[in-house]
Amino acid sequence: MTVRLRPPRHRVDPRARRWWTAQALLTVSGPALLTAVALLVLALLFFAGALPWLAPLILGVLVLPAVGYLVAMPRLRHAVHAWELGDAAVYAASGWCWHRRRIAPLSRVQTVDTVRGPVQRRYGLATVTVTTASTAGDIRIAGLSEADAEELSRRIGHAAQAVPGDAA
């Protein structure tokens, strides 16, 4: 018989996939694709001779990774990201390539923050951050619906007060 750490019960909001796609477009894929287009246009205008080797290079180095990231990252994240508030601890899973599961007992919780970024707000999402005295114990649950986030941060706050703690 072995003991297994089961994944957290609750998935994040389905809208989070669209938010992650938007984020990918804004930070990684968008700039990479724009660079690729700019390079190709420049090559077409000024060094048409370089196209036979430049085009496959750009395709392999810029376009394919950018598109791959844009398609894969949100799906993988949505499959991994999850959270759960237990009787004595908060549990969250995150990541898409590297996975991370973190569990912090409520007795160690110091603060609970709810953050809504500009992009997140467009999709009606929020991030709940639970901090402990150790930076290696801080839990971030991203991609919750605003109602869920409010409810969760309220419940964590209540539970942390109910559990006798040693926050220091």
Binding site: L5, G86, D87, A104
Partner: peptide, 17 residues
């Protein structure tokens, strides 16, 4: 993890045969 610091991960563990 459960043995080293009891009371943190316990409730999220699952026993499989």
């Amino acid at each position: 993890a459960a043995a080293a610091a009891p009371g943190i991960v316990d409730e999220f563990l699952e026993r499989t045969p």
